[in-house]
Amino acid sequence: LVRYRTISKIPQITLNFVDLKGDPFLASPTSDREIIAPKIKERTHNVTEKVTQVLSLGADVLPEYKLQAPRIHRWTILHYSPFKAVWDWLILLLVIYTAVFTPYSAAFLLKETEEGPPATECGYACQPLAVVDLIVDIMFIVDILINFRTTYVNANEEVVSHPGRIAVHYFKGWFLIDMVAAIPFDLLIFGSGSEELIGLLKTARLLRLVRVARKLDRYSEYGAAVLFLLMCTFALIAHWLACIWYAIGNMEQPHMDSRIGWLHNLGDQIGKPYNSSGLGGPSIKDKYVTALYFTFSSLTSVGFGNVSPNTNSEKIFSICVMLIGSLMYASIFGNVSAIIQRLYSGTARYHTQMLRVREFIRFHQIPNPLRQRLEEYFQHAWSYTNGIDMNAVLKGFPECLQADICLHLNRSLLQHCKPFRGATKGCLRALAMKFKTTHAPPGDTLVHAGDLLTALYFISRGSIEILRGDVVVAILGKNDIFGEPLNLYARPGKSNGDVRALTYCDLHKIHR
């Protein structure tokens, strides 16, 4: 019993810090008490220290592992850092350059016999395009090294910054494609005289377009951006097909006994025919423009016929181009109408809503002055909100995010209106959640004399007048207030005048 009563005193000691020596009952000389009392004092002292730490809000209350900052290894790049964003855009520009100039170089340097010394005699450094290609190869190699040090988000939505895990993730992902696209074939085969082989191998750079397509997928929600990307894709495919079309004609031209190829026909049409040795002929500019003209006309199913396939190889390629053109029509131009419709969806919704308003007016036989006010209010409210119901949009977000959005939407009023000066951010967040926005066209009466005042109004834009009878008592403008002081009276009061809008007004109100 003594032991039980001794232990039962522990909660009292913990909360009230009572010393055991003052209790005459606990001072009985028993061996059990002498053993338990020192333990009680020690526990009391420890609990006292913990309570003191909690009340003082000291940093040592938290466990040590929670006080440590997340460790980022040296030379690790955050995937959302500004440097990584700028670097990704730079790589994107280099990939676009590669997609345009690599097929052009591979096709127009394929057994090209233009006048001038061969590239091997001039030297590697004197070729501007080769120098640019070398810079692109170096940048792609540097990009691989950067990807080995860039964080990523795993399946659990955690940012991984450990170098080993980053390397394994990159090896399992895009490393092989990036490595093949970054191989400097110019340096590996330079001086061997195989410019045709170098041009063909350099087309491996186009593998990076797969990554670019995935990154550009984030802009699919913007109709104008999608339309622009589709047109660029169409032009890029036409450019690639033009390079292939020229390569076919250029390879067949020296081996044909009869002059029936499209390059021969082009030379005869523009007065620059090929001679018996295969030299001469149109310039590279004429060849490229004509090839691009043929691919565009074939892809769009126009086909004027002034550039036509004559050999079997050219006919087979033309059939493939027609098939590609039909697929592009289905996948690209078939979506253009939907994209344009999405661009004008706001206008369509406006006309639909206006039609419903006019049908309501016609069905209920609203008189002319009231009908005009109804239409003007709808037009003004639509121009202010673009038909978007803010309350319906915010309803799907958590309250903390709703408060931040409301604070942002009402920031101008909260910053410049005098009653809100000096208020804490928590108070402003709470008030912003209570605001209701209303609009009024010129001549609209917001409050009639004798109406119950259940709200306090803040003028965000425009001006109003307060009338008693036919006498203008006051004219209020931006950041002015009218209405009933909230919670100042037990019952809502009545208006002693009319409140009429002089201009288009936007008002925020808080109800009782």
Rank of each mutant, 00 (worst) to 15 (best):
S194T: 14
K202V: 01
A225Q: 06
V136M: 03
V131W: 02
K84I: 04
V357T: 04
Y80N: 14
R208I: 04
S313G: 04
G123E: 01
V393N: 03
G280A: 03
I198M: 07
W245F: 01
S161E: 10
T203Y: 01
M256K: 15
N335D: 03
K111G: 14
C126K: 01
W75I: 05
A449E: 10
V168T: 09
L414R: 03
K66F: 12
S345M: 13
I198E: 04
A423C: 10
E196R: 14
A449T: 15
N335E: 07
V168W: 13
H169W: 04
P70S: 08
D286Y: 01
S313Y: 06
P398F: 01
L134A: 06
Q365E: 03
N391K: 05
A235K: 01
Y329E: 15
A224C: 14
L229G: 05
A392L: 08
V336S: 03
I135V: 05
S313C: 13
L187Q: 13
N265S: 13
L236C: 01
I244Q: 01
A242G: 01
T203H: 03
A107W: 01
Q402M: 04
R349W: 09
P419E: 08
L93D: 01
P367W: 01
L229R: 01
M251F: 09
Q353L: 07
A348W: 15
M231G: 05
G191F: 04
N391W: 05
R165K: 14
N154H: 14
Y288K: 01
E314Y: 01
E112G: 08
A125E: 01
F360A: 03
V142L: 10
L90V: 11
S81F: 01
V168F: 12
F420A: 01
A204F: 13
L413E: 01
G261I: 01
A291K: 01
P128D: 01
D137C: 02
A330S: 01
L299D: 01
E121W: 07
Q379G: 07
D133Y: 01
R259T: 12
A430L: 12
N310L: 01
G123H: 05
A204S: 05
A125Y: 13
G164M: 14
S313D: 05
F360E: 03
L110A: 14
A224K: 01
P70K: 07
Y329L: 15
L176W: 11
G305D: 01
F140A: 01
W240Q: 01
I244P: 01
R218F: 01
V447C: 06
E314W: 01
L129T: 06
L446C: 01
Y384M: 05
Y219K: 04
P117T: 12
A392H: 15
L446I: 14
V212S: 04
H351Q: 03
L409T: 08
T290M: 01
N312W: 01
Y384A: 11
L431C: 01
A213T: 13
L90A: 09
E157F: 14
I361A: 11
K436A: 09
A224M: 11
T76S: 04
E115C: 07
T352M: 11
T76W: 01
E314N: 01
A238P: 01
R421P: 03
L197Q: 01
L299I: 03
L431G: 02
Q379A: 08
S105M: 07
G422H: 11
A430Y: 07
R165G: 05
F435C: 05
N335R: 08
I146M: 03
G267D: 01
T120A: 08
T102L: 07
T150N: 01
A291L: 01
T385G: 07
S192A: 10
V210N: 09
S337K: 04
G396W: 11
D217T: 06
Q127C: 03
L78E: 09
G281L: 01
G396S: 15
P70W: 01
L323T: 07
A181R: 01
R356S: 15
T203R: 01
N154V: 11
S192D: 09
L109G: 13
R371G: 07
N265Y: 01
H73T: 11
G281I: 01
H408Q: 01
A238C: 03
I77N: 01
Y288S: 01
V95C: 03
F363P: 01
G191Q: 06
S326V: 07
M433G: 04
A392F: 04
L292D: 01
A247K: 03
K66V: 09
V142M: 07
H448C: 07
I244K: 01
L263F: 01
V86D: 01
L209N: 01
G426C: 04
K66D: 04
A204Y: 11
S345V: 11
N275V: 01
T300A: 04
L299R: 01
L93F: 09
V357F: 15
V393I: 07
L93I: 12
P309H: 01
V159Y: 03
P273C: 01
L206D: 01
L230W: 09
V100K: 01
Y293D: 01
S277C: 04
I135S: 03
I72V: 12
E314G: 01
V168H: 11
G261N: 08
L230T: 04
I96E: 01
I405D: 01
I141F: 11
S161I: 11
D268K: 11
H73N: 05
T76D: 01
S283N: 10
K285F: 09
M390I: 05
P398N: 07
G191H: 14
L145Y: 01
M139N: 01
S412G: 09
V447W: 04
K111E: 11
L92N: 01
N312D: 01
M328C: 13
L292R: 01
D137R: 10
T347W: 14
G422I: 06
E376C: 11
P441V: 11
V136C: 12
V289C: 01
W89A: 03
Y80I: 11
M231T: 04
P82T: 07
L216Q: 03
L201F: 07
V100C: 01
I324N: 01
L93A: 11
G346L: 03
A99N: 01
K202L: 01
N306E: 01
F190A: 14
G280Y: 01
G199L: 04
S301D: 01
E114D: 12
I144G: 01
H351M: 03
A238Y: 01
K202G: 01
I189Y: 11
L343I: 05
S331F: 11
L414D: 01
H380G: 08
S297H: 01
L370K: 01
A130M: 05
V289T: 01
M328R: 03
T102C: 01
I284R: 05
C243D: 01
A69C: 04
L197P: 04
I96W: 01
L323P: 02
K287N: 01
C243G: 01
C122I: 01
P367T: 05
Y170I: 01
L188W: 06
V136S: 04
L206F: 01
L90R: 01
L279M: 08
Q253F: 15
P442C: 03
T120G: 10
C122P: 01
Y344K: 03
P184K: 01
K436H: 07
Q341H: 14
L299C: 01
L413W: 04
V136F: 05
L241F: 05
Y170N: 01
S331E: 01
L263D: 01
W75D: 01
I138S: 03
I405P: 01
K215P: 01
N265M: 14
N410P: 03
L109C: 01
L323A: 05
I144V: 11
Y288M: 01
H239C: 01
E114Q: 15
I198A: 05
L110Q: 15
I244V: 08
E359L: 02
E64K: 12
T311A: 01
R356T: 12
P282F: 01
V100P: 01
R71C: 09
K84P: 01
H169L: 01
C400T: 06
D88S: 01
N386T: 05
S81K: 14
E114P: 15
W245L: 01
Q372K: 07
R218N: 04
S313M: 14
C400N: 10
S313K: 02
V168S: 09
Q68C: 01
H79F: 01
E252N: 04
R421C: 13
K84M: 01
G305H: 01
V95A: 01
S301F: 06
D186N: 12
I388E: 07
K111V: 04
N265K: 14
I138N: 03
P441R: 06
K215H: 01
